[in-house]
Design a protein around this nucleic acid. Structure first.
Lengths: 331, 331
DNA sequence: TTCATGAAGTTAAACGTTTAACTTCGCGGG
DNA sequence: CCCGCGAAGTTAAACGTTTAACTTCATGAA
């Protein structure tokens, strides 16, 4: 409402002087400075960031595109990114792509029009083709969680391969040999990497996993339930004694199937999940799982983004964040 | 990069004409229109929303302040609000207050400076004092989830009272008489209303709840665990046979304590939660709980906000959304 | 006394739109 | 033949900042 002009009038100076006082961009005499601050307070003046952004060509706004903020994993990434943004006086525009590349594309357009200073995204598609629009316009961006093949850009990933390896290694260590795996949608790199970790561990143990031990799920609890029922239906000699589920939701679905079959965990079937969602520690028995530094991924993405906004020329950095095996009672 | 000016030059017309074509605000001859669109496409022109907002005094941006986006409840509200925003070509700026009134205040300032068209907030404090800043500037806003005493404004709430009543009524219906309640922090209206619902149901059944049956928790699983242990330590004649927990997290904490005590649910102790978080259906036994239309609350908040942006004069509307009792196996 | 210097202020252009007000021109009615 | 009118275009101001360039004036050195 009150503008620079109003403040200037009340303080009896030019608008330029007010601007200099507000931004501290040039020395101003003490008396004038005091008058300006008085006027600012009296008028409850607040700078208009649109006008500022228009002139400076910097908006102090970032964009974040995730598949679905209602998914706790992405929500926590968003939280981490927002914390970093706030700490640096940036605002964050949140976008939900629903994993739909065309919706993601529309959002990219909106963010560009909104003149955001940078974009973080958990991409909806597996190739970087749709990011050329950012490249062309020289907009800083960072990709999170999901890798894009052959993309030269800043990137924050959890070490999913290592996670799958650790989980499987733990089961092997407990003496299991027939270990099954419930995967996610295989075109997404996080899931694929976890499965590769599983395979690597099995291979190192000199075990060739049977094809029927690998069940393709969709990251939802329901599919874990079906997977476990399927495993339990296998003839005894090839029935798995342990299951590695590529996320906790599916692991919990599996728990239910195992419980319904009258079997107990971990005596009859051992179980390891992935993600360490809040309730992993509250199911019975508490779930052994692999924790990702989700919040940290959001923070790091923010830091990389801000750094790139400062210095665009730097070579892109790939960050592979360590995961932790959390041993509880399910394996 | 490309501006109206560039498009105008390429199409051989004035920038005004280009603007009219883009916005369809005035008739333009077919040939000219075609040339303009050609130029727009060739130059990959995208309007600068800052400039547009500055001129129009409408940014098509909304703000949302929640305590913590990493909390699935708020994350889902955010999701609902964002969906509505996107559908109406609005963008959403996300802010996390951590329940800290001063941080909330800072965010309000930022959003104002950002010239958002409206603000939705899950307020950090119980009184509407800090919202005067919005009032003074005539910025449309809507409060969600938590009521503010004596506030005249649009408002979206779940019927928490009814939820507490339903949950308790269900337990009474199953024959329970000694029913305990695990509350949340009592200064927040959602929790307080649930407790009032509990009390009302008990009263209607002619039961005066003992003071020791009401345990003050903090909405986290740990506090539910402690609450249940406390209840189980009571002498048999006054030991509760059923527990109503004001959220699912605390209910699940209670489950754990009950399990550890070697008791079974619902035979020895019945349990009802609140929220219907995803995993409520995956714990063992599946949790009977009260579901709030969380996503719907976000959507409705968005709709109210947009409506108010259109027509500021309308009297404020209070929406009390119905909750549902979901009967599973814990009670 | 003169003049370069620097401190502290002002002026005005620029950022990219929108939109009120103005121009131009062809056409039809009187 | 003149005039008014409407269609279709242009001009320029405005939105609220930032900032380069300019002005003014006191100071101190030569």
């Amino acid at each position: 409402m009150a503008t620079l002009r109003d403040v200037a009038r009340r303080a009896g100076v030019s608008i330029a002087t007010v601007s200099y006082v507000l931004n501290g961009t040039r020395p101003v005499s003490p008396e004038v400075e005091a008058r300006v601050w008085e006027a600012v307070a009296a008028l409850q003046y607040r700078p208009n960031r649109l006008a500022r952004g228009l002139r400076r060509k910097r908006t102090h706004v970032l964009g974040l595109i995730v598949p679905d903020n209602a998914n706790p994993f992405f929500a926590e990434i968003a939280r981490g990114l927002e914390d970093i943004s706030f700490a640096h006086d940036y605002s964050l525009i949140l976008c939900n792509s629903d994993g739909d590349p065309s919706k993601e594309q529309r959002y990219l357009g909106v963010l560009i029009e909104q003149q955001v200073d940078g974009i973080a995204l958990v991409s909806a598609s597996a190739t970087p083709a749709h990011l050329t629009i950012l490249r062309e316009r020289g907009i800083p961006f960072v990709v999170v969680d999901r890798d894009l093949l052959g993309l030269e850009a800043d990137c924050v990933l959890a070490d999913n391969f290592q996670g799958g390896y650790l989980a499987t290694w733990h089961l092997l260590n407990r003496g299991h040999r027939r270990i099954a795996c419930i995967t996610g949608p295989s075109d997404l790199t996080p899931s694929a990497d976890r499965v590769r970790g599983y395979q690597k561990a099995m291979e190192e143990a000199g075990i060739e996993p049977l094809e029927v031990w690998v069940y393709r799920g969709d990251f939802r609890a329901e599919s874990g339930y079906h997977a476990a029922r399927f495993f339990l239906s296998l003839p005894l000699p090839i029935r798995p004694t342990a299951i590695f589920a590529c996320n906790d939701l599916m692991a919990i679905g599996a728990m239910r199937a195992i419980g319904e079959a009258g079997l107990s965990i971990p005596q009859d079937i051992a179980l390891v999940g992935f993600d360490d969602i809040v309730l992993a520690s509250y199911v019975i028995p508490p779930l052994t799982t692999v924790a990702q530094p989700t919040y940290e991924m959001g923070r790091l993405a923010g830091e990389l983004l801000l750094r790139r906004i400062q210095a665009r020329g730097r070579p892109p950095a790939r960050h592979l964040l360590p995961v932790r095996l959390i041993v509880r009672h399910s394996a």
